[in-house]
């Protein structure tokens, strides 16, 4: 199973050269770029751990790539994504977000169905990795 969150998950994993071009695109737009890490990639887990603060006022992607390398070294088997923030009035949100590292094995999710009266079902999504092991030892 391959988790397909993020802007470029249907493409082959991006090389550092490709990542650099996307980062430079973000920098040239004046966006701040942050690095986020998790071992709980539930589709509604919004707050991955920040690997440092978002980086403001950079001019070249090399600075961000440096931190991506640090993050990969620290969390080789976690999901790592970069997230770009646009502070323009009435945007003021994330405008680009893509995965730059993923675990070697991705066991994925189980759909849990709870039967309710009538034909109604309640649904929840459960990560096999999260259920199996505690944080930090999942992948």
């Amino acid at each position: 199973m391959r988790i397909t969150q993020g802007t470029f998950s249907y493409l082959p994993d991006l090389s550092d050269a490709q990542i650099t071009k996307q980062l430079q695109y973000a920098i040239d737009k004046g966006w701040a770029v942050g690095i986020e890490v998790t071992d709980d990639p539930h589709p509604r887990n919004t707050y991955w751990e920040m690997f440092g603060l978002p980086m403001f006022d950079l001019r070249d992607a090399a600075g961000i790539l440096l931190e991506i390398h640090n993050a990969r070294k620290t969390f080789p088997d976690h999901y790592i994504r970069v997230t770009a923030f646009d502070s323009t009035h009435q945007v003021e949100s994330v405008v680009l977000s893509f995965i730059v590292n993923r675990p070697k094995e991705e066991p994925g999710f189980r759909l849990v169905r709870t039967e309710e009266p009538g034909r109604t079902l309640r649904y929840s999504i459960e990560s096999y990795a999260v259920v199996a092991r505690p944080e930090g030892a999942r992948y």
Partner: peptide, 18 residues
């Protein structure tokens, strides 16, 4: 609605996306 929502949730679990 019932069949569609089963499909939506199943696809969400299969991809990890909303």
């Amino acid at each position: 609605y019932l069949f569609v929502m089963d499909a939506v949730n199943k696809a969400s679990a299969a991809t990890g996306e909303v």
